[in-house]
Simulated assay, not measured.
Amino acid sequence: MSTPIKVLIVEDDPLICKRYQMILSKDKEIEFVGTAASGYEGTMLAALHKPDIILMDIELEDKQAGLRATSEILTYMPQIKIVMLTVCETDETVFRAFELGATNYLLKNMPAEAIVQAIKDAYYDQPSLHANIAGKITREFKRIKTAEDSLLHNFFILTQLTPTELEVLDLLMKDYTRQEICKLRHVEPSTLKSQINSILKKFNRSSVQEIVPVLRELHIPQILAQRKGKLSLGDG
């Protein structure tokens, strides 16, 4: 008989842990080597037992503990295959798990045969992603790519604004009214209107409402606050 697949379970729910132990004990190709109830304990047992596969719960002592443990384990023991466990998956969390090097992703309530198959697929380098998980990775990748493109695009436009326009935009993003901006900057409404029109033209937009929400979503106000005075801007 070939060497059994050594599996470590990292799960803080004793009932789920017991269920997985029972499932694994029924398969002659799998050897159950231990359980851990926290990310820290999981990392220690991974070093001690050197399992082939780890079934890793994402939410252990906190919501990110499983991801941290995964990162730690794969940094020092990259040969280990990690299959993530969760009760509900979000696009972002699924993507983050695979970004860290997880091999597969399982919902905790999946049937016994699906859990065993996922372990064997991971061991033999044949990860078979469930269709909904694959879709989530694709969607999150597209979302990140779009956000990056949008950030670069909008940041480039910001570098084209004059210091005066940048200051006006900053006040608009802080929800100051046009009247308040005129008072603060000691300018006539017609002057402010001209400055805002110039900003809109550079962003190729017809209203401030089209710009501000996008810039907020990309955390542009925070970037501006951190880099104030450091941007290479034109004369204003």
Rank of each mutant, 00 (worst) to 15 (best):
D57P: 11
V116L: 15
E99A: 07
C17D: 10
I137Q: 12
L85I: 11
I58G: 04
N109R: 14
Y20T: 05
I54H: 03
E113V: 12
A118Q: 02
L45N: 01
G39F: 00
S128H: 14
D13E: 15
V87N: 15
Q126A: 10
I53P: 07
L24P: 00
G66Q: 06
A37H: 12
T90W: 01
R68N: 09
R96P: 01
I115H: 00
I53W: 01
Y40A: 11
L100W: 06
E140G: 00
V33H: 03
E140K: 10
Y20W: 11
M44E: 14
K63I: 12
A134M: 06
L24W: 00
F32I: 06
P78N: 08
Q117E: 14
D62F: 10
F95G: 03
P78C: 09
L60N: 06
I23W: 02
I73T: 05
D91H: 10
E59H: 14
L48D: 13
I30C: 01
E11W: 02
V33A: 06
I119A: 07
Y40L: 09
E99S: 13
M77H: 15
Y123R: 12
Q79W: 06
I58P: 02
N109C: 09
Q21P: 02
T103A: 15
E11K: 02
I54Q: 02
S128G: 12
P14I: 09
P14M: 03
Y124L: 07
L15V: 14
A118T: 09
N109L: 13
A147E: 13
A114W: 06
R139G: 00
A131Y: 11
E59T: 15
L60V: 07
K28L: 12
S71Q: 14
L74S: 06
L100T: 03
S25T: 05
I115V: 15
L129A: 01
A37T: 14
F95Q: 11
L106S: 04
L67G: 03
D27W: 03
F32R: 05
G66C: 06
A97Y: 03
P111A: 07
L55I: 07
L45Y: 05
C17R: 11
I30G: 00
D125G: 11
R139C: 01
K120L: 01
V33F: 04
M110H: 12
L60F: 08
K145I: 04
P127C: 13
F32T: 03
Q79F: 07
A46Y: 01
N104K: 06
D27A: 01
Y105P: 10
P78L: 05
A114G: 05
S25G: 06
K18P: 02
E29P: 00
D125V: 06
I115R: 01
I137F: 05
Y123H: 14
M22Q: 12
G39N: 02
P14S: 13
E92G: 00
T35Q: 13
A102T: 02
V83W: 02
T103D: 02
P14H: 11
G42Q: 08
V83M: 07
Q64M: 13
